[in-house]
Design a protein around this nucleic acid. Sequence first.
DNA 1: AAGTGGTCTAGACCACAAA
DNA 2: TTGTGGTCTAGACCACTTG
Lengths: 229, 229
Amino acid sequence: MDRPGTWQAVRAEALRRMRAGDWPPGGRIPDEAELAAEFGCARATVNRALRDLAEAGLLERRRKGGTRVPVTPIRKATFEIAIIRQDVEGRGQRHGYRLLEDALGPPPPEVLAALDWPEGAGMRHLTALHLADDRPFCLEHRWLDATVAPAEVSFDTISANEWLVRNIPYSGGNIAFLARPADGPAARALDCAPGDALLAVERTTFRDGAAITFVRLTYAPGHRVDATL
Amino acid sequence: MDRPGTWQAVRAEALRRMRAGDWPPGGRIPDEAELAAEFGCARATVNRALRDLAEAGLLERRRKGGTRVPVTPIRKATFEIAIIRQDVEGRGQRHGYRLLEDALGPPPPEVLAALDWPEGAGMRHLTALHLADDRPFCLEHRWLDATVAPAEVSFDTISANEWLVRNIPYSGGNIAFLARPADGPAARALDCAPGDALLAVERTTFRDGAAITFVRLTYAPGHRVDATL
DNA sequence: AAGTGGTCTAGACCACAAA
DNA sequence: TTGTGGTCTAGACCACTTG
């Protein structure tokens, strides 16, 4: 338990009341000032607790409208996106890396659409395999703005995944999960049968409003991505 | 832009400094009191800004250790988990629902392992299909503690997905993404070929430390789950 | 032992949206 | 118009953890 008077304690009590039915779905809960008086703490403490619950999707808050328990809450789940080496090492396995291809060339149409680049000017295409304890872990397929990583930068020993995180400090982007059948090259690289169902993650990274890289990570069969609810 | 003196403005400036290289990866940034003096705001405002960045994985903070820019940040991505009806309607489509099966019976071993139930006492097994504009959207396969939803509760017109969210106020759990080949029944229900690569989401929900339901949602081919980075 | 972030307080003003 | 959450302030004490 949390010591009383802390925002964690207020949050815990709010959760308890929702579970117990004291604050039923669709209903409005007392305002911050009332709760602060009841709990004997400052309004800022109540605010911190309720804001936390609202960020998780368990409460809906509006100025003047008050705070309500949603009828059908839209919960937020979060998952951690580490670089692949850390992901592998975090599982207690040894990370290996092999660069399979490094060439200049235009991406396929569906990738070009995601990037919104002018005719694919100066695009570097990388294919690499990540290993966990010498077994295939993940196939990295990446298109990269050549001005971001010029030809001098070699991805023989460090993956583009890691190089980018270390050298392009912060950047926004989007990310999506999907399932793909293994094509021929993927099946060979990941040591599975063509057509096998594989989990893939696609990410586009932007800097200053322009896309600088698109990557598709295709994981070996059986891979799961866990998130905390 | 944010008005100066707000925590959003402080966050924006911190991000700018990281991108610009003023605060390089691996380095330590000034402490809260210094930044508050520099920005002409209260320390609590700086704290709010830096805490927000730390929660996103862009900073690492430790008492006495100060605040550092991580060399290989572990970014947090969040995605929203709505009920399936809302998910479909949010895409501008009409949601449909068909209960395919409702029976009592023990779950397969791999599900039983996830649930940690004693011999599957009183388990209800539901299979349902969700439609978007009359086309297959998602196959819901659920095992449910029969004491949570007794036989009186009918899932003919409301999905277990929605019933649970409405009637079991708050509950913790875990969630995972994976890829699965379509088996025979799934291929028939989702109108695809057996063996097609399908995205699936598995969730176990707990209440008071005991699992109350396990669900596997298998989506129609081509489905993507987007998250915000 | 001491430095730094974590949090609480009491008060204030503001922004937004509902009535 | 007015109620409610959003945020800022100045100060204080505490908890952790590093040197």
